[in-house]
């Protein structure tokens, strides 16, 4: 009986810890990606924009797998699509298209994070 109770407490604690850790990671990563989008958008020259976009793409690559485990796959697919479009714009050296994609991607990241927050709207 005592063992079962301990197992029960561990289950509750583990599920809470994992969900909290996941939420904090998503919050931190979404914040970093959004800030990277904003600073790329605020760049003065096209070259600075391209450099900032490359840095953003590297950040995305390091986070993609965990995002896949933590977020809905449709959300991750949308983000993947947005970053692939950004990559294409970079390859074509199209700063204008890159800026539009950056603005959309930043908004997408914000929306995805809003959907993950444990607030009144999401709980109910």
């Amino acid at each position: 009986m005592k063992g079962r109770v301990i197992a029960g407490i561990l289950c509750v604690f583990l599920s809470f810890a994992v969900s909290l850790a996941g939420f904090l990671y998503v919050r931190m990563s979404c914040g970093e990606l959004e800030r990277a989008c904003s600073s790329a958008l605020a760049a003065d020259t096209d070259e600075e924009t391209f450099a900032a976009c490359e840095s953003l793409l590297k950040k995305w690559e390091t986070r993609r797998d965990l995002f896949g485990a933590l977020l809905k796959h449709t959300d991750v697919d949308e983000l993947t699509r947005a970053f692939l479009l950004l990559e294409t714009a970079l390859e074509n050296r199209d700063a204008g298209a890159a800026r539009v994609i950056l603005a959309n991607t930043g908004a997408l990241i914000r929306v995805i994070f809003f959907g993950e927050r444990p607030d009144f709207e999401n709980i109910f």
Binding site: G8, C11, S15, V18
Partner: peptide, 13 residues
């Protein structure tokens, strides 16, 4: 996994 663990844990308690 999180939902099932939480359910199982709360039910045991």
């Amino acid at each position: 996994v999180v939902s099932i663990l939480a359910l199982a844990g709360v039910e045991i308690l």
